[in-house]
Structure formats: structure tokens, C-alpha cells
């Protein structure tokens, strides 16, 4: 068994988990988290497939592409977060039913 098979499978599973999260959650920040999971799953799959085929380390091109992808992902995350925060502020300014249902203070000490 090639050493990077587990990582490839792991990437595949992560993609599945992440996509589930993106689609199943209705909370924006949870979706954002799921996006990040999916993204890294895709990258992990990419890297490990490359390692798989070259029999060892991940190739330079996939690595470069993955780094690019990571930076793009962090940029998008930051932007979405900025939007979410701003939307939340709108809610505080003028409470209205909408994207943040159940956003009222939840007991922090609940089990």
C-alpha cells in the first residue's frame, strides 16, 4: 500500500463531510467552517494523489496550486466573515427576523 493512500481517502471523506456541512447547516458561520473543511479536503486529495502518482512527495505544481488555493480560500473566508459580522450588526441595530434565527444569547454553560 502506498503511503499516501490514507491521506487521499481522508481527503475524499473530508470533501464529503464538508459538503454535507455546507448544505445541511443553515448557520452562515457553520457553513463557512464547512467550506474550509471542504477546501482543505480537496487540497489534501490533490496533494496525496500527486504524491501517490510520483511515489513519494507531492509534486511542485500541485503544491503551488494548493498554496494558491489556500490563499484564495482565506481571502474568501475573510470577506464572508466581514459580511456576516456586518449583517449581525444590522440585526443589533434593528432586530429583524432573518439570517440569524436563534442568535439570542445561548447559555454558555450548557453541557
Amino acid at each position: 500500500m502506498n503511503g499516501s493512500i490514507p491521506f487521499a481517502l481522508c481527503g475524499a471523506v473530508l470533501v464529503g463531510i464538508g459538503l454535507y456541512g455546507v448544505m445541511a447547516h443553515d448557520h452562515l458561520l457553520r457553513r463557512l467552517i464547512a467550506f474550509n473543511v471542504t477546501g482543505s479536503g480537496v487540497f489534501l486529495l490533490f496533494g496525496s494523489l500527486s504524491a501517490l502518482s510520483s511515489g513519494g512527495a507531492t509534486g511542485a505544481v500541485p503544491q503551488a496550486l494548493i498554496i494558491t488555493g489556500i490563499v484564495v480560500a482565506v481571502a474568501s473566508t475573510a470577506f464572508v466573515l466581514a459580511l456576516v459580522v456586518r449583517l449581525k450588526e444590522e440585526d443589533v441595530d434593528a432586530p429583524a427576523p432573518g439570517a440569524f434565527e436563534g442568535s439570542s444569547e445561548h447559555d454558555d454553560h450548557a453541557p
Partner: peptide
């Protein structure tokens, strides 16, 4: 607009 933008981004 913010809601639409978030939805779009998602």
C-alpha cells in the same frame, strides 16, 4: 444587500 451578497457567496 448584505444578505444577498452572502447568499451569492455561499
Amino acid at each position: 444587500a448584505f444578505e444577498a451578497a452572502i447568499r451569492y457567496l455561499m
